[in-house]
Design a protein around this nucleic acid. Structure first.
Lengths: 224, 224
DNA sequence: CATCATAGATAGTGGCGCTATCAGATAGCG
DNA sequence: CGCTATCTGATAGCGCCACTATCTATGATG
């Protein structure tokens, strides 16, 4: 694993040892060492054979890992891939977004059953109807297909009726996402913003949906 | 664990043995036995000391478990709690929805830090502004608080700018959910519909968001 | 009657995210 | 200078989870 060289940035901005890094982030020292071993966190800069110092980038990265893990619910393996995409500065932004998105969905291999075939057709139709520039066989499309097929298999295929409303809401959210990222001029920051926004945005939206459901449900069913 | 008695329904509608149940659902026999041991699936009806038959409800329940597990990403423990809520026919619908929603968010205990305190205030303000009948300290509110606090901690607190757009979209989705459930007259089915819709709806929306982002992103960044 | 499937029970497996322990070296303080 | 707390780097172990394997005794099936 190649870690981006900080070059001549010798400002020793906020160099601390591992104990202090642990105290600041609430992550235990063994866990920090474990993340370094796993290649998720760059090793500290050695000042002597058994002393290393960690700076702001380490603290930031560590907080990012914890956020993706605890709030985003990603596995460490998925986090590693997301971070690699974030660190790859050669990669076009659009490409990076796709890469991050792909890490968020579980793989569903195997022979497609009847429900999956039908669901895939529905997904393709939706994409065509909305004029989206997207592939039904991309990971995101496959995830949607899997969800629709699962609905059919559990006998709740009728729930697909909400699909268009969901798609409209998703467009709204995606528009807000893009407008926000468009305001980020700093490209360095933008890439991480997209990754964070994609992962934590899911968690945010799910929580908001739940709150809105609580409200709507309490109005409809009140106390009964 | 009490399993709902099917009463005098002796129609033997679709009784099969465990091997056939396994073949139909793609779940291995040992796994089915495991689910029965774990109380997720009712045991088959014994026809002799070492023969049991499984009917449609078993197949349905088994498919539901797999959908919640594979598509919804729930743990078996969470699935058990959701199923218990679904099976509890005494419980008011609104209550059940809350119960299911609560199973979907991870617990985040511990002393609240500065970011959490600020995030909680923002959540309370959002709820007040939108006039929602919801509690900022409910599991859903706490999940939103955790997400906002995490954004702040990773240095992307500005992403909170999209919050209102997300909230509007969430209202739209919740409205579609409620309209759909309102059309379900059968209360038996309704309860499961709400659970399935809540869990698989998250997966659906996340996938749709990803597709809409792909589209929006390809328009904005095109090939660069 | 031979073969296969089954119930029920117990033990084992593999992956994941840490956690414990250790040896040897250094930091920082009086 | 000595003393103790801390550090690096390495290896081993742990607890949880979702299975999976194996076994015995029994019954189904052709």
């Amino acid at each position: 694993m190649m870690w981006r060289q900080e070059g001549k940035r010798k400002r020793t901005e906020n160099a601390v040892r591992i104990g202090e890094l642990s105290r600041r982030t609430g992550v235990t020292v063994p866990t920090i060492k474990y993340y370094v071993r796993e290649g998720l966190l760059p090793p500290g800069e050695l000042t002597s054979p058994n002393q290393a110092s960690y700076g702001d980038p380490h603290e930031r990265r560590l907080r990012l890992i914890r956020a993706l893990l605890e709030v985003g619910g990603l596995s460490l393996a998925a986090i590693g891939e997301v971070l690699a995409a974030v660190d790859d500065r050669e990669r076009p932004v659009h490409d990076m977004l796709g890469e991050v998105a792909d890490r968020l969905v579980a793989e569903h291999a195997g022979e497609p059953d009847a429900e999956t075939v039908l669901a895939r057709e529905r997904v393709a139709r939706l994409i065509a109807e909305r004029g989206w520039d997207a592939d039904p066989d991309s990971p995101a499309g496959a995830a949607l297909t899997a969800a629709l097929a699962a609905l059919a298999r559990v006998g709740h295929g009728a729930f697909i009726e909400v699909l268009d409303a969901y798609a409209r809401a998703a467009e709204e959210v995606a528009r807000a996402d893009l407008e926000f990222t468009a305001r980020r001029v700093d490209r360095e920051d933008l890439v991480e913003t997209v990754a964070v926004g994609t992962v934590l945005g899911d968690a945010m939206f799910a929580a908001l949906r739940r709150l809105a459901q609580t409200d709507a449900s309490s109005r409809t069913f009140s106390t009964e």
